[in-house]
Simulated assay, not measured.
Amino acid sequence: MVAIVTGASRGIGRAIALDLAAAGFGVGLLARNGERLAQVAAEIRAAGGECAVATADVTDAGGAADAVTHLEGALGPTTLLVNNAGRIDAEVPLWEADVEQWRAVIETNLIGSFHVSRAVVPGMVARGAGRVVELASGAGARDTVVTSAYTDSKAALLRQVGHLHEAGFDLGLRAFGLAPGVVVTDMTSSMRQHEGRTDFTPVERTCEMIRAIATGELDAFSGCYLRVTYDSPASLRARLEKGALPPSARRLLIAPWGSDDPHGDGFTPVR
């Protein structure tokens, strides 16, 4: 089993990489900061795990593709891709946003994810199996008053999850949007909206969910938005015991204003 984790040099990505390595995955570590990646790799190897390192900026399509080629050359074909690399913009409304910063957030969170997926997914499809996890956010599932680039990009990732599911399900591909809650990281610690916050979500919940996804036990939730603050592998298994999910469950939709409104009704996914 081989996993590639982007943004693996710190925060949630680092925790995911360490956890997957401890679970027996060969882990491809991808991030911009080579020094920090080397530290994560040293931790994994000291614990007896297997990993490979590639330094790249996911916003560079060629660099991302080269990184994937290097990691798969060292570890073997990717069975799990965790698109975690991301950044956030200033906590201001759209009309006060810095143009270059706004663009950079979209390029990292959304286009960067596309670049890595575009490099990894063809191999998964050719082999008839593979799982992609997009680190989404609760902010992408609702309207907010600040950080418009971040929320726009995270909403788009949920739509990308749906696309991968619809286009790839019959080819063996499974895709998941996973919101990690508010985890203590450098990013959240710098945000005004989290000043004084005490109810952080343990990163271990995200790691547990990704491990469950990697084993295939949550494949019934492919295409769906999962949020570890409220969901767990156990709660999702319990939900499946109640019967099949409604076709539109946990999908990004437009809610109709009533029974006479066609928008949001008649959702007919491939699976």
Rank of each mutant, 00 (worst) to 15 (best):
I12C: 02
G243C: 04
L37Q: 12
T69K: 13
S259Q: 12
A220H: 11
R159G: 10
D57A: 11
D89C: 00
T188P: 02
M1I: 04
D66T: 14
F221W: 10
E50A: 10
A129K: 09
G140Y: 09
G11M: 02
A167P: 06
L240V: 07
L245D: 01
D152Y: 11
D170H: 14
G48E: 13
L178I: 12
V105W: 00
L173D: 10
T79W: 10
G49D: 12
A38L: 03
V146G: 00
R239G: 09
A175Q: 02
T108V: 14
Q160A: 14
D260L: 13
D231H: 09
D265H: 14
S113G: 12
G123K: 07
A156L: 04
T147Q: 14
I4H: 07
D89T: 07
E166Q: 15
D89L: 01
V184L: 14
G172N: 00
G128W: 06
T185N: 03
E208V: 10
V105K: 01
A67L: 06
V121P: 00
D265M: 14
N109M: 00
L80S: 05
M1N: 00
A74I: 08
Q39V: 04
E204G: 15
M124G: 01
E195W: 14
D219Q: 05
R127C: 12
C51N: 12
E241Y: 07
S153Q: 05
V183N: 08
Q101K: 08
W257H: 14
V92T: 09
R271K: 11
F267G: 10
V183Q: 07
S117A: 15
M191A: 13
M187K: 11
T185W: 14
A234W: 01
H70P: 00
L173V: 09
E204I: 04
A238R: 13
F176Y: 13
D219V: 05
F169Y: 13
A23P: 05
G168W: 03
P269L: 01
D60R: 01
R103H: 06
G13R: 13
T55K: 11
V132C: 13
V68F: 06
F114P: 00
A52W: 09
L29C: 05
A21Q: 10
S148Q: 04
D199F: 08
R14W: 03
S232V: 02
N109V: 06
V125C: 00
A97H: 09
S148L: 08
L71F: 02
V125K: 10
S235L: 14
D19Y: 01
M1R: 06
G140E: 12
A212K: 11
S248Q: 08
R142P: 09
P93M: 09
G258A: 08
T185S: 11
V2Y: 01
A8L: 10
L164A: 11
V270W: 03
C224V: 06
A167T: 07
R211Y: 03
W95S: 04
E91D: 08
L29P: 01
L178F: 05
A136L: 08
D89Q: 01
G34N: 01
R237A: 15
N109Q: 12
C224N: 01
G140T: 11
A220N: 03
